[in-house]
Simulated assay, not measured.
Amino acid sequence: MTCSSCSIILPIKDQGLLKIRHPRVSLIPALDGLGMLSQKCCENGRVFRYNSRSELEQLVNGLARLPHEWLLHMEALVTGMYHVEGYEDWLLFSQLQVRLQHPEIVNIICDKSFSSHLQPIVDHKLNIIGFEFLLRPSHSERPFQPFRLFEIAREAGLHAHLDRSARISAIEKSAACLPAGIKRFINFLPSTIYNPVYCLNHTFETIDRLSMNTEDFVFEVVETEEIDDVSILHQIFEKYRTRGVSVALDDVGAGYSTTELMNCLQPDYVKIDRSLINGCHRSSDQKRQITGIVESASRFGGLVLAEGVEQMEDFEFCREAGVSLAQGYLFGKPEPCPPSNFVLSRVV
């Protein structure tokens, strides 16, 4: 079984062929109207030869003058003079445009030029029970903002590659710097997992290869777009749990991570968004929302974690309200390595 979103990323060569096709429209009349000479490559498809990166960019810019409604569904394929036999990485034309506009981001993803920083997660006694792994640049000369990296990767059709690589990188980092028994909270984008049985194989293969205990892992749902099909998330959760992995719902109380979604999915960990935690000790509305989340989570046995804690007064309220765990600058910033003297505590 193969998945184009999880397979190799073919590099854009400085010389090669640009193929385009449209599922419903013949492109020949429009291309003739633009004065763009081409040859037929397939049904409703044309091919252009280019001899430099600038020529390729000129071709793409010329094709961008086609009617907008055509561009929405037009696909493109760039091949070098020599390419992987039997493999064709057809993209939406818009995805090719983004890859050409942001070559530095594509290179960071292809080269896996990133690492993970660890931020501690504490219990009500301030013992560290685990760490969240957060994506950061691995080289100062190739900086990026994590949110922007994923945003461009999504536009370029590379977010599945990035999400999988970041997940594996975090697992490998945890094996190198954490003892057994400490929780490892690792983010994943559910929109990148099209078939849970296949798409999660890389995750479990990495854990098995490093002889790690799946029960030490907590995978967090992080989603910046509305989840249209909750049944897919249920399948993902089921796949994780059958392997002994816990699951968490991130940013509850903000954006698309609503309390309704929490009650539907019933995650093992419920992470309350920092917007509800910051200044909660002096806001009756925030207190009410936090208390409501704790009460809802208690009905299905979910452990509640407060994110973005920066004030002791907020932590104290959360602790009194029944929040089990906390994370934020009050306890430690994301760092390349865990503190050498952290106290290991276990959460059942």
Rank of each mutant, 00 (worst) to 15 (best):
177 C>D: 04
121 I>D: 06
207 I>L: 15
154 R>W: 00
140 S>D: 13
127 N>K: 10
204 F>M: 14
87 Y>K: 05
97 Q>D: 08
196 P>W: 07
201 N>H: 13
105 I>W: 01
99 R>Y: 00
143 P>M: 14
86 G>C: 07
151 E>R: 06
205 E>Y: 13
197 V>Y: 13
116 S>T: 05
97 Q>H: 11
75 E>D: 05
171 I>K: 09
219 F>P: 00
215 E>Q: 14
98 V>I: 06
75 E>R: 03
147 F>H: 10
163 D>W: 06
198 Y>P: 08
169 S>F: 12
155 E>N: 02
103 P>L: 10
97 Q>L: 13
193 I>F: 04
153 A>E: 00
98 V>S: 02
183 K>D: 05
97 Q>R: 14
187 N>Y: 10
102 H>C: 07
81 M>P: 04
107 N>M: 09
153 A>G: 02
205 E>D: 13
115 S>C: 11
101 Q>V: 06
129 I>S: 03
79 T>G: 14
109 I>N: 02
181 G>A: 08
120 P>A: 14
90 W>Q: 09
171 I>N: 01
90 W>I: 03
162 L>R: 02
84 V>S: 12
114 F>C: 03
176 A>V: 05
127 N>C: 07
163 D>H: 05
156 A>H: 00
162 L>T: 00
196 P>V: 14
197 V>K: 13
192 T>D: 02
84 V>T: 12
116 S>N: 12
123 D>Q: 04
211 S>C: 11
81 M>W: 11
99 R>V: 00
154 R>V: 02
163 D>S: 07
179 P>E: 10
83 H>T: 12
118 L>D: 06
210 L>S: 06
78 V>G: 02
